[in-house]
């Protein structure tokens, strides 16, 4: 059992990832997730809360970033540091990034949603569509005609 808490005073919530790993998380951290909050309100609080859409490695990442995010409040340096980590993750492992984004979206965690969205937004800035596709392994699903039309309609943005 993985414990992500070292405090004994606050309430502990038990969660289970899609691959069966069980996590114990402080209530204050768990409640960052609006999904978990809703589930607890629906009286799942005394049971193990299942998270069928999140694997253990991704859930670790989510918890880690929730904690970092809580720490960085009012700390500009840390904020900067956390913001710059996105670029590295997107370059080295876009797959993990998209899994993290999916998990954050599923768990409905506002603070991490903004952080992970900012990562990709920073990454997109100034890059050409071709480079974005190449780096993020996205398939170009436009016909040549469609693509030409989009480029024509948004020509000012490519000057």
């Amino acid at each position: 059992m993985a414990s992500t808490s070292n405090s004994t005073s606050s309430k502990i919530i038990t969660l289970r990832s899609s691959d069966g790993e069980v996590f114990e998380v402080e209530e204050s951290v768990a409640l960052e997730s609006n999904l978990i909050r809703r589930m607890m309100e629906d009286d799942c609080a005394n049971n193990i809360i299942p998270l069928p859409n999140v694997t253990a490695p991704i859930f670790y990442l989510v918890i880690e970033h929730c904690k970092k995010h809580a720490e960085m409040k009012d700390n500009k340096e840390k904020k900067k540091e956390l913001r710059s980590q996105g670029e590295e993750l997107l370059k080295s492992d876009p797959h993990t990034y998209s899994n993290l984004m999916e998990a954050v979206n599923y768990l409905d965690i506002k603070s991490l949603m903004d952080l992970t969205a900012q990562w990709l937004a920073d990454f997109l800035k100034g890059k050409s569509p071709r480079l974005i596709r190449e780096l993020l392994k996205i398939k170009n699903d436009f016909t040549p005609e469609e693509e030409a039309e989009i480029l024509e309609r948004n020509r000012w943005a490519f000057d």
Binding site: E147, W156, A157
Partner: peptide, 9 residues
């Protein structure tokens, strides 16, 4: 960037 992104997929 939004206009450029529209040409990605």
């Amino acid at each position: 960037d939004a206009c450029r992104s529209s040409a990605v997929c």
